[in-house]
């Protein structure tokens, strides 16, 4: 083991520039991953929060009777797909709610209550909000909507908001994934190139090793260790700079921005471990690639 380590260190010392390039590329990759993993998680968390609030409001006609209410409630609860939770808000309750939220508007209203009885239907899954709306009020051939019950006046949801949020979250996720994938590929290739150079620089040694009967893995280990060492070094530097960035910039702002406090983001310690693991895995992959292609043993 000591022999392998010594050989690996010797090799790094022999080509410092490619080694530096490989380390730097790992550093950048891990830095980007380290910044974007929490950001993606926070936005996903925020989007999920909004999505959880996505409701389908079923407004009853103004003249709906108690019997109508019960019939609609039963239909929603038992006969309708995609229904998660059904909450009934009576005219009076709705009025009170609105009044506490917007006292300046509702205190001016002249006594009468313009709000209908409402069922607030939560879909079983936020993604199904639109399907739920279509189930409760299927579109007819003319484009108008007719509800499943005559007592229902209109069925509404915040369709555009929902769609936008879903779309943006998805775009952000995919863009991050793509960027991370590209950076990982670049890092693997750079590490692989470094190891290839190192192999080339030490081809005589490899030749001699083969001649005197060193086993394949005995020849490979120093190179694998070299690659992993470079990767781990890059990862370590990246995690250090992330720590500095977190302590210096993010922590003071946490009290001001709710997003930074998002409970969905993973713990920093766990993140650091994941990133270090990723850098080691990426560099091992890079070394393996070169060894497979350029070290015929």
């Amino acid at each position: 083991m000591g022999f392998f380590l010594k050989e690996a260190v010797r090799s790094v010392q022999r080509n410092p520039i490619p080694s530096f390039a490989a380390t730097a590329s790992i550093l950048v990759t891990v830095l980007v991953l380290g910044i974007f993993i929490p950001i993606t998680q926070a936005t996903t968390g925020a989007a999920n929060e909004v999505r959880d609030k996505v409701l389908v409001n079923v407004y009853l006609k103004a003249n709906a009777s108690k019997a109508d209410q019960n019939r609609v409630a039963a239909k929603l609860r038992e006969d309708t797909e995609y229904v998660g939770k059904v909450a009934f808000v009576s005219k009076e309750a709705a009025f009170k709610e609105q009044k506490t939220d917007y006292p300046e508007y509702y205190s001016e209203l002249l006594g009468s209550n313009p709000l209908p009885d409402t069922f607030r239907v939560t879909p079983d899954n936020p993604d199904n909000a639109l399907k739920l709306r279509d189930t409760i009020a299927p579109a007819t051939a003319t484009g108008a909507r007719s509800a499943i019950d005559p007592a229902i006046d209109t069925v509404k949801n915040r369709k555009d908001d929902t769609q936008n949020i879903l779309f943006i979250t998805r775009v952000v996720k995919w863009a991050m994934a793509l960027l991370a994938a590209l950076l990982i590929v670049a890092s693997v290739l750079l590490i692989s190139n470094t190891i290839r150079l190192s192999l080339f620089a030490r081809r005589r040694e490899v030749e001699v090793m083969k001649l005197v009967g060193a086993t394949d893995w005995f020849i490979r280990w120093p190179f694998v260790i070299e690659g992993v060492m470079l990767g781990a070094l890059g990862g370590l530097l990246a995690v250090l700079s992330l720590t500095v960035g977190k302590v210096a910039f993010v922590d003071p702002l946490v009290s001001d921005f709710a997003l930074l406090r998002a409970p969905e983001t993973m713990q920093f310690g766990l993140l650091a471990v994941v990133l270090l693991g990723a850098s080691v895995a990426v560099s091992a992959m890079g070394s393996g690639l070169s060894l497979r292609r350029f070290l015929k043993v």
Partner: peptide, 15 residues
């Protein structure tokens, strides 16, 4: 590799 350990090899260019 284990077979080669039973051989000694010398070349023109010393290696």
């Amino acid at each position: 590799p284990y077979y080669r350990r039973n051989l000694g090899v010398v070349f023109q260019d010393f290696k």
